[in-house]
Write a protein that binds this DNA or RNA. Structure first.
Lengths: 394, 394
DNA sequence: CCGTTCGAGGCGAACGTTCGTTCAACGTCG
DNA sequence: CGACGTTGAACGAACGTTCGCCTCGAACGG
């Protein structure tokens, strides 16, 4: 049961050299050590099953090759994608990932971040919407450790990777409008989330573009779960029996919406059209197949890691390591939002503070449009709507 | 951007004591240091924003308070539950979690485990079905680090936490039989997975109990995804048009099955009854609401952590740590499939090697049974089937 | 008044590395 | 034939802790 780890000294002893020499060979490679000795050391290491102790290594190198990930509750497949992608990307770059899952409230965020800091992670990825409101976490991230967030961070100072969520609302609603719908309801996530407000802005702006004044009664708040979404749909149907289309803020809730609609005897898409958000793997297999706005979640996780790693290695950019990234990437990339003053465009001083991943509409059956799987991409130019200021988020 | 961490020496200096004294105070608490001095040290630490460097601590304590988690691909909500629950449980016990997600093949398992070992995790939780076949991983876990698995481990020596999956097959199939179905098909996960074979055994045994000889044509292999499940269903319908019920190996695939059934114009449950597996959060909101076998995934994750932590702290049990070095437990390898001699019951000498979490049937609408949400629990006595003894797996 | 005890805190060592410097031996060259 | 380079390897120090033992001085008992 000898679970003791063998140290480099034992390897060295067996090879008959000083442990420092062994160290040299075992890492660096061929630095000033005869081929013979090298072979002996390597052989000894293999025989003994030597595994370097990264703790000791980190202690002297002052870097752990470990990233921290603050993850959400994760009852939603969509969010899980981010974490998985991020971890994979990190590992590809030789970094391990220390993870902490928030409670549903997200109030334990600071605790998690402190844990990560004490473990001296090289950087932190904040991948939970709940963190949006957590000023304490934001402060910790600003002060103690390089970080990248997938959601807007109170007080700024932490670069953000993600999509423009106003675009999602815009895309979904415009599509519904183009199909002739006028009474379009929406089942949202919690209002206090920026994502939600952004999607709502897109929804409203699209409506106004079409000359329709948004109605409060058509907007029902839920909490991302199918359960609450089903309830919300019931309420919506009650308040506005004549609604003919629904924009749902995520695909998981769409399941609940579909369920409630079925329970109410409304056919989809014949009576009511439905458009979701995220484009999770099962979306094409709902009945009817769900039309939804694809949000590149996995890609966001990956990009977040890349950006974070660049920052850590102290790549230039005004924001100490942030920038130079994404030079003129994407079609119109970054500046999705109408924000006259601070375009955050490429070349802007704050470039790199924000990486934008375009969303796109995936047309399936639930909206009643005929052709299968057409795709319309965002971000989109907003004709005339300086109304909603910049702060969208991922 | 001064990201430098303050060390305990700086705290000590500021408080005017030796750093060892500061150390004493900052951990142990009231150990032979005057209240005054303590206060001074604590104050200094606070002012400086001192965060202990757990690397150094771990180095001397020879324990990292970190657990490794080998997680699956995670495109399935059900599996994500395990990871989240495990991480939460670990944190509750003051442990952090280092996570590695397998690729779809799971061939990178050893690489991940090695990474965890080099980082000196105190223990490893193997929570991926893909690991079932990975002998290299099993070997690493046996040799280098205490571990607990959620799935059977080749060669044994690693305790397993999970449900008896024969029971799931039994429960689902018996239910369908009790509803009068005789032509019952099943859409499975990959055959090479034990879980799958176990569920299949349950399915077949239930059939035989009812005097029905299982037919190969009624069994179609898929890969856990809705996509392949839909295809498989199409195939099943083609081969056996008269099938009146389907047992699906997980809820995510059930989405695909429902979709294919709808495409084929079969009504559920009127024409075909469907029973799933797992009981994920959205199951009640599918149309129709999915009858499914509830598998306590989150609980399994939690229990795995508890068990692992007990093992680490060297709690007794005959298997002291890891089976006192696998004496003569070789080929008889864990209480695997058909091994009449070793029932591994409670009170058995090898108790602790296997924790069983009962599954239960949750009756909803997709099977056509009338009462809403009845529940039938397992594990179940098998009337006359000594064929498949205990050895199912999680 | 001296020896003992006890409370408070200092000190050395160790944990397993990495990194830069030092050292010995052996040619080689002028 | 001695100064010098090279080459190969050893060595010392440091990373930030924890832990156990040691010392010091004051208080206390006899």
């Amino acid at each position: 049961m000898a679970r003791r780890y063998v140290s480099i000294k034992e390897v060295a002893a067996r090879a008959g050299v000083s442990f420092q020499t062994a160290s040299k060979v075992l890492n660096g490679g061929s630095v000033r050590v005869s081929a013979q000795t090298q072979a002996r050391i390597i052989e000894a290491a293999k025989q003994l099953g030597y595994r370097p102790n990264t703790l000791a290594r980190s202690l002297v190198r002052r870097t752990t090759s470990t990233l921290g990930l603050v993850a959400p509750d994760m009852t939603d497949v969509a969010l899980a994608q981010v974490s998985v992608a991020a971890e994979r990307a990190a590992r590809r770059h030789g970094h391990a990932v220390l993870v902490g899952h928030l409670g549903t409230g997200g109030e334990d965020g600071a605790e998690i971040v402190r844990m990560l800091i004490e473990r001296r992670v090289d950087g932190v990825i904040a991948a939970a919407p709940q963190l949006e409101e957590n000023a304490e976490v934001a402060e910790l991230l600003r002060r103690y450790v390089p970080a990248v967030s997938l959601h807007s961070v109170p007080g700024g100072g932490v670069p953000v990777v993600g999509s423009n969520h106003r675009d999602t609302g815009l895309l979904a609603t415009r599509h519904l409008l183009s199909l002739g719908h006028r009474a379009i309801g929406t089942i949202t996530g919690p209002f206090r989330r920026r994502v939600v407000r952004s999607r709502l802005h897109g929804y409203e702006d699209a409506l106004r573009e079409a000359g329709i004044e948004p109605e409060e009664d058509l907007v029902v708040e839920a909490d991302w779960t199918p359960r609450r979404a089903a309830e919300a749909t019931g309420l919506l149907l009650h308040r506005k029996p004549r609604v003919t289309a629904i924009f749902v803020h995520n695909d998981t809730m769409a399941i609940g919406v579909l369920s409630a609609l079925a329970a109410a005897g409304r056919r989809v898409p014949a009576d009511v059209a439905v458009v979701g958000c995220d484009d999770v793997p099962f979306a094409p297999y709902l009945v009817p197949a769900l039309t939804t706005v694809h949000v590149p979640l996995a890609e966001a996780g990956e990009q977040a890691v890349e950006l974070l790693l660049r920052r850590i290695s102290g790549e230039p950019g005004h924001t100490a390591g942030a920038g130079t990234g994404e030079p003129g990437h994407g079609p119109s990339a970054g500046p999705g939002e109408a924000r006259p003053g601070t375009p955050a465009g490429p070349g802007d001083a704050r470039a790199g503070e924000r990486v934008r991943l375009p969303v796109r509409l995936v047309i399936r059956a639930s909206c009643g449009a005929s052709p299968p799987a057409r795709v319309i991409t965002g971000p989109i130019a907003t004709p005339a709507s300086p109304a909603t200021p910049g702060g969208e988020d991922a």
